[in-house]
């Protein structure tokens, strides 16, 4: 399979995530869009790891495995991030009774 298709697929998913972040106001949806973007990158990393493996399998049996380990660590970080992020959203909701990010314009002041 040509690596190009994976690249385009990942770009498409990533841009969908960006558009989601840009157009939605619900903090939870925005958060999910960020997860979507992370996953698109994960997919690309795995595809690249396999590409490298195909190219270098002759010299090293484990060639390309770093890419998949990266994905593993990204998932670790994402899980930690989600736990903290959701805690923040819960806190926000408790204080404002809303999850609308447009209320969060304190950066202006």
């Amino acid at each position: 399979m040509d690596i190009k298709y994976y690249i385009f697929l990942s770009i498409a998913l990533f841009v969908i995530g960006i558009v989601g972040v840009l157009t939605r106001r619900n903090a939870i949806i925005i958060f999910m869009c960020i997860e979507l973007m992370l996953n698109s990158v994960n997919l690309l990393l795995v595809a690249f790891s396999k590409m490298h493996h195909l190219a270098n399998a002759a010299t090293s049996a484990t060639a390309g495995s770093e890419g998949q380990l990266f994905v593993f660590f990204i998932m670790v970080v994402a899980a930690a991030e989600v736990s903290v992020g959701l805690a923040i959203i819960v806190m926000l909701f408790r204080n404002t009774h809303s999850v609308d990010v447009n209320f969060l314009n304190r950066l202006k002041h």
Partner: peptide, 11 residues
């Protein structure tokens, strides 16, 4: 430009 809303900054 400085509306204070993250969305605008991301855009």
């Amino acid at each position: 430009l400085q509306s204070g809303q993250v969305g605008n900054y991301v855009l």
